[in-house]
Design a protein around this nucleic acid. Structure first.
Lengths: 169, 169
DNA sequence: AGGAGTATTCAGAAGATTGTGAATCGGGCG
DNA sequence: CGCCCGATTCACAATCTTCTGAATACTCCT
């Protein structure tokens, strides 16, 4: 029998894999989203996910390198605990930003190497510009949301939007 | 020997796969970014990419379903031509928005099913809120950029950022 | 220092994904 | 109406990723 509350986590993990994250890291990350406040040990994770310790080891290595989770090494205890980084969501965004910039550069090159097709080249440059805009704005978006959350009375971006069912689907 | 100007396209395609897009669609899409203004035929694509017609067929099916490219069926010519959708970049964004909403819903569920861990649950809700914020803002971001591009004199978002080397990498 | 438990690493198996080749379908032209 | 060319589909093969199991290294307690 599975542990309670794994269904939503598995669903969420599946979505993360759809955006490019490897499966096991995604599953570990979502399991940690439902962890007790002390976090989970590697053994806990292996048990809950039904995988080997090796799989957990590789997953947490990935997640730590991406700054998405923290390893909590408490002195006097060999058991490491893990939990989500406070800014894990922001990390998910900023991780993509440099990639967008590089992608924009490639698109510019594609366009420049195609002088015979002005319209096509213009479109490629347009996409490149947009990606650069994204790369610049997405980290700002994270900052703006954080600011809006810390000062909900302000006119800043409302964290809960308008309370409508944006979660549908 | 390869066709000219494929290097940047392959690089760009590799980056798209890193964000979750299957390889062949990514390669086709970036090849189309460097296409002549009339677009490429399926045979052109197969030749340039060094793959079979079947692979191209599957790729364009995927890309058309994602609204990332257009199939140009000219009457009197069985050869379909393809080119990027005018709003392909916007499509890449809006395609992710509903996924973020759903992911947010799962995170809320994860948090709600974990009442014993208030801090952890709060963090999960926080991520969910941020993802909802993203789902709401990202389409707006595309709209804002488009507006700023159509009216560059305005104070709107500058397409070319500040001219700094954001393309480095 | 010795012992025990934990994390990590590595080679290999299992699984999924991806692309090919051949047959089929479909539309247009002679 | 029949031929022809292009697109599509399907089963299979190659490739890559992913996870396991066993061996190794490391850390803390006695």
């Amino acid at each position: 029998m599975n542990h309670p509350g794994t269904e939503a986590a598995e669903q969420a993990a599946a979505m993360l894999t759809a955006v490019g994250m490897p499966r096991m890291p995604a599953r570990v990350m979502m399991a940690l989203a439902g962890s007790p406040d002390e976090g989970y040990t590697a053994a806990d994770l292996a048990d809950r996910l039904g995988v080997s310790a090796a799989a957990v080891s590789g997953a947490v290595r990935y997640l730590v390198s991406m700054r998405l989770i923290h390893r909590l090494s408490r002195p006097g205890d060999r058991r490491d605990r893990y939990d989500l980084a406070e800014d894990s969501w922001s990390g998910m965004i900023t991780a993509n930003a440099p990639l967008y910039s590089t992608l924009a550069a490639s698109l510019d090159r594609i366009a420049d190497e195609n002088p015979a097709a002005p319209a096509s080249a213009a479109r490629a440059h347009e996409i490149a510009d947009f990606l650069r805009y994204l790369a610049e704005r997405m980290p700002q978006l994270a900052a703006e949301w954080r600011a809006g959350r810390d000062a909900p009375g302000d006119e800043g971006p409302g964290p809960r939007a308008d309370g409508e069912g944006a979660a549908g689907g």
